[in-house]
């Protein structure tokens, strides 16, 4: 199959993957809390119900911006799999996330705005890592595309242990898991109500959910980049990483934004930065 076909497949299969992942997540989280939990397909039922509901908006630009959020999340995956330069993907990924911030910010209401600002803070926290990770992967493998990295004889994770470690930390932000779920939370008992989704309902909320599923699939694809010997190996690594995330999610409270920013930057600087520095020094 050509890379373009993978790209198209991503558009259709990533939501299925993300939704199932969310279903498993909710089930496992419930069991960790001693509850029975919802059916496995509950996220899909929820999405269906959200789409059926009356769509009420505070202003008319929210919907286009959220569509942009979904679209660019999907585009990031398509570009990644269809062989676009990895470092460029990091920028597109940030653009996709930015659309969510703008949608929430455009509402101009106290809670959505504070959520949007916090999302900007976590973008600021996570973005350096993704640029650095992509650059490091390119440096290690000498390739610049997804297929190229997968074809490389080097096992990236072995060369980039620090980046892998920082990835686990930063993925907590992107997967919206405690302790880093500061801009939104799956149940709204936080100081910002529902953070940046506070003023979104019905169809709007469905877009956010859908984009998050794409995002999860994208993170999985990133994990495959780190374990590039085979796709099943990458999937296994992602499953283990996700299980860890769920466990930590159920074992910590939500951090404050200052700690999120500081710890993520420190991890990026020390673990991935140190890793990249070593890589450059040794490859001389």
């Amino acid at each position: 199959m050509t890379p373009a076909v993978y790209g198209v497949l991503f558009v259709f299969l990533a939501p299925v993957f993300g939704g199932l992942l969310a279903g498993v997540d909710r089930r496992v989280s419930a069991r960790m809390q001693g509850r029975i939990g919802p059916p496995l397909l509950q996220p899909f039922y929820d999405l269906g119900k959200l789409l059926q509901k009356q769509a009420r908006q505070v202003n008319p630009v929210v919907e286009p911006l959220l569509l942009g959020h979904v679209f660019f999340m999907a585009v990031s995956g398509v570009l990644l799999l269809s062989g676009t330069d990895l470092i460029f993907i990091a920028f597109v990924f940030a653009l996709a996330a930015l659309f969510l911030v703008l949608a929430a910010g455009s509402v101009n209401s106290p809670y959505s705005f504070a959520g949007a600002e916090r999302e900007l803070v976590v973008l600021l926290a996570s973005e350096p890592f993704f640029i650095l990770m992509m650059a490091a992967i390119c440096k290690v493998t000498g390739a610049s595309t997804y297929a190229g990295v997968l074809a490389s004889p080097q096992l990236v994770a072995v060369q980039l242990p620090g980046v892998l470690l920082a990835f686990l930390l930063v993925a907590t932000i992107k997967l919206r898991k405690s302790p880093f779920d500061i801009s939104t939370s799956h149940h709204p008992h936080q100081e910002l109500v529902s953070g940046l989704t506070t003023d979104m309902s019905g169809r709007m909320l469905a877009y956010v959910e859908l984009a998050h599923w794409y995002e999860s699939a994208l993170l999985c694809a990133f994990m495959v980049l780190l374990f590039n010997w085979s796709v099943p190996l990458g999937l296994l690594a992602f499953a283990i990483a996700y299980a860890l995330e769920v466990l930590v999610d159920n074992s910590t409270s939500r951090a404050k934004w200052q700690l999120v920013l500081r710890s993520t930057w420190a991890a990026t600087l020390v673990f991935s930065g140190g890793n990249v520095l070593a890589l450059f020094l040794l490859s001389r």
Binding site: V28, R31, M32, G34, R35, I36, G37, L247, S251
Partner: peptide, 18 residues
């Protein structure tokens, strides 16, 4: 994180809800 063993134990024991 002291909650981790508790969460893992819950994972394999009977749920408290009906």
């Amino acid at each position: 994180l002291p909650m981790i063993p508790r969460a893992l134990r819950n994972l394999v024991s009977k749920p408290a809800t009906r």
